[in-house]
C-alpha cells in the first residue's frame, strides 16, 4: 500500500492490465483498477483521464514522489505488488474481479 488507506472502502467493478496506456485508454468502465508495470507520470495521468480509482504497480515497481503527489490530488489509490502481471491479474480474477466487455 503506497497511498490511499482512507479510500479502501471504495468498490471496484472491473480491472484492466497493461503496460501500454493507449490499450488502457481504449477501455472504459466505471470504478476500475489498473494493473501496470509502467511506472511513470503517464500511468497516473491515464488513470486520471479514465476515472480509474486504483493502480496496482506490478513486478515490484514503486512510484516516485511526484507520481504519489498527483495520485493524492486525484484521489487514486496506489498499490505495489511483487507479483508479475499475469499472477497479479490472476489473483484478482480468482477473487471475482472481471475485465469487462471485449474490445470492439
Amino acid at each position: 500500500m503506497i497511498w490511499g488507506e482512507m479510500l479502501l472502502d471504495r468498490e471496484v467493478h472491473t480491472a484492466c492490465g497493461s503496460d501500454m496506456m493507449s490499450d488502457v485508454l481504449a477501455f472504459v468502465k466505471d470504478q476500475s483498477v489498473l494493473l501496470t508495470g509502467l511506472c511513470n507520470m503517464q500511468a497516473i495521468r491515464t488513470a486520471e483521464m479514465m476515472d480509474i480509482i486504483c493502480i496496482v504497480f506490478v513486478r515490484g515497481k514503486v512510484p516516485d514522489e511526484a507520481m504519489i503527489q498527483l495520485a493524492r490530488e486525484r484521489e487514486i489509490v496506489l498499490l505495489s505488488s511483487g507479483h508479475r502481471m499475469f499472477s497479479a491479474c490472476g489473483l484478482l480474477y480468482e477473487k471475482g474481479l472481471r475485465g469487462g466487455a471485449p474490445y470492439r
Binding site: M20, M21, S22, D23, T36, A43
Partner: peptide
Amino acid sequence: RSLGFGAGMG
C-alpha cells in the same frame, strides 16, 4: 513504447 505509448491506438 517503454514510456507506455506507441501501441498504435492513439
